[in-house]
Amino acid sequence: MTAPALAVRGVSVRYGGLRAVSNVSLEVPDGKIVGLIGPNGAGKTTLVDAIAGFVACDGRVEIAGQDVTRLKPHARVRRGLGRTWQAVELFDDLSVAENVAVAIGTPSPWATVKELFIKPTLDKARVGGVLDSVGIGHLFEAMPTELSEGQRKLVGIARAFAGSPRVVCLDEPAAGLDTSETRALGLQLRGLTSGGTSMLLIDHDIGFVFGTCDHVVVVEFGEVIAEGPPHEIYANERVIEAYLGSSALRTNDPGGPS
């Protein structure tokens, strides 16, 4: 059996006296999408920060079987990790295409030096391909400040996928998108897994998560309270009580999973 694309083993994060994440373990197998849901303040974003190296944590984080717990964020990216931010953080001084180009990969030092003396070119085909994969190819030349919130989200997602990562953590990618955009995003994400990319998908839109994911993990107060395939989670008493009961109303995909 090959190592999962992402493995989180017994990770805990403390903010002062608060245990934002306590002893969470989960795995994202190759080519699969794992959902992570839970009420506000459950610790989902904090877990992603720990995975990506933006907060110190106890426990282990592995990417494709390699321990990355001690690595800095950019080094984890080079091992195959991508992430998006809940509040989109684009490079506002760069065009959409350049935003994606930054994340495409680290050129060799030699290539970097060479570029300083000849006229550099942007890999238009590759950047365009990345933008097309989330349906925003027409925004190539735009500046982030000219975009709607939904479009900014999509640029952030495109940037996370630009470096052909093994696994991407998506923090509420559908927030700010309307119903049809959300449905399209779900299809696009499923399409991206065919290239072998795995995902950890966080969202409050339960219909979106259950319709897109292969497996769902539920957290509350920083702890995993349930996990399993979407239909099992959907029927899980404890989950309904903790979370679904209140936020199922917020689902904007009335069809949902059956």
């Binding site: 080094a75 990216v77 992430r83 490079f91 001084d93 930054v102 680290t106 996370a160 630009a162």
Partner: peptide, 16 residues
């Protein structure tokens, strides 16, 4: 420019 705009996001895009 990525670093200038947003250091965190630059790190998340693989920039040292």
């Amino acid at each position: 420019l990525a670093v200038r705009s947003n250091e965190r996001a630059a790190a998340a895009a693989g920039v040292n």
